[in-house]
Each structure stands twice: as structure tokens, then as C-alpha cells.
Amino acid sequence: MTKLTLGPIAYHWPPERRRDFYARIADEAAVDEVYLGEVICSKRAPFHEPDLPETIERLRRAGKTVILSTLAEVMLVRERKATAELASLEAPEIEINNAAGLFARGRRPHRIGPFMNAYNEATIAWMASQGATHVCLPVELPGPAVAVAAGAARALGMGVEAQVFGRASLAVSARCYHARAHGRTKDNCRHVCEEDPDGMPLRTTDDRPILRVNGIQTQSESYLALIDEIPELVAAGVTHLRLMPQAVDMAAAANLFRALLDARLSAAEAEARLREICGDAPLSNGFYHGKAGYRRIARAPAA
């Protein structure tokens, strides 16, 4: 059965918000697996790491599988240390987002995160040979390539994951653009990214929404939403569908995708409800269709 996963929170949500969020996910959201851990900025980790054991326990008691995700960018000593520490864990499972994590993990089992650039069957085969059990495909990979990659990974006995909801990660940098917007630098940022729980909106000079800033990360303005595409993803061998936490009712979003997977909800109904949940945020699926990522490609009506 296709599993639903909840990706790691990309934003700097305060500890209390995170606790409430995961309590609700544990109690109400039909997700099977939850990724925890700070992926974007090592300066944020001290704020929510103390709650991690309790959150893991809470989610486990609710029957969810918990996976810890490593940082996407590893450069500073504290980032190298954090990555090595996670890589040394026997349990829970870990998802690796940087080659420094692969180095530390060796051949012990691990998952490959979306920042690892597993674009093709050769790379996936290499990763599997080094102990990878599961791969999350890059968000920009178009449908035909997803099918080939998923088929190859399944043949190697791996789990295959694709993001179906939430802002797409478009870039990471060493520079913090949140700090920059406030006339600061990364070292004296005073955690200003906390002000934007769904990313800081950038608009073009002619006032068109275009991108979101989340610390060192740049995200899509649109929420990626694959709905009509899900039967194709599942048929191709994708075993896990990833929902990225946004500042919307994520339990409702998760339950909607579960209903869609269980054929309790039509694609048209699912899209209408998702639009209600997401408010003004535009939905997009361009990447999957090999078009500009921000676009929403309507599926041709069945003949």
C-alpha cells in the first residue's frame, strides 16, 4: 500500500508550535511516516532538539515510523559534528541530505534525501550498493524520468519517495537571505526567519509573487500539488508520497491525500478541498510535466 510521509519542517517554527503541530499529526493525520530534524540551518537546531525524544515517542505511540533527516548543507564544524552524530545512530532510521552524511554513515542502512540529487538509475544503483534502502527523488524530476528511476529503485528493493505537496526547495546557499533582508548577516541573524512560518514572500518589481525565502533556502511561491498524477506515480513504482509541512491545516491535507489514495475521494474533489485548505497559495505541478515548475498543467479530460 502506498505510504504517506510528512517531510521535515523547513521553517523556524518555535518549539511550542512544533510540539502542537506534531501532537496534532500524531492524533489526527493519516501519515505513515514522519521525518524530523533540522535540514536547513544549524543555528536553529538548539531550539527544538530538546523536544526531539518526546516528539519521537509521541509519534511512535501513534503508530508512525520516525526518520531523522540530516542537514542539506554541511560546512561549519558544528554542522559536520551534527551530521556525524546523526549518522552514528542505530535507531531511528536516518535520511541523509549531504555527502558528508554518506561518508559518516558508510554502508550502514540509510535513506537518501531529496537534496542528494538521485536523478537517475545509475546514481540510485550506486547508492543502493552503499547501503541506501530508500530514495527521495529530486523535486524537479519530470514524470518519464521519475518512472525510470522508480522502476530501477524498486528492482533493487528500495523504497521510492516523491514530493506531492508543499513548497518546492529551489536552492540553498551559504548566505542567509532572511538576515540579508533585515540588514543582518548569518552570524548575527537573531533568528529573524522565525517571523515567517511559511517563508518570506518575494515579489517582482511589478508586484507578482515569485519566490519564498527561508533562511539560506529559496523555495517556490506555489505549493507543489500532484493529484491527477498520483495513479501514474504509484503505477511507476513510487511507494511513498511526501507532504511538506506548510502553515496550513496539515492534518486535513494529509487526510485528503489518504482519501484520494484509498479512492474515497475523486481527484477533482481533492483539488477543490486542497484549494480551500491552502487559501491564496497557488498550486503547481509543472516540474512533473517537464514545464516551468510554477505552472499548473490541467489534465486533459478523459475522452
Partner: peptide
Amino acid sequence: LMVEGRCSLTSYLTGQSTN
């Protein structure tokens, strides 16, 4: 500016991918 090999900005706006 961006970490090279991890940038899909062009792909997002044009449909052509840097990677």
C-alpha cells in the same frame, strides 16, 4: 550565489533545468 548543483530556480521559471 546558490550552492551549485542544488539550484532549480531556472527550472521553476522556464522549465529548463540547470542540473
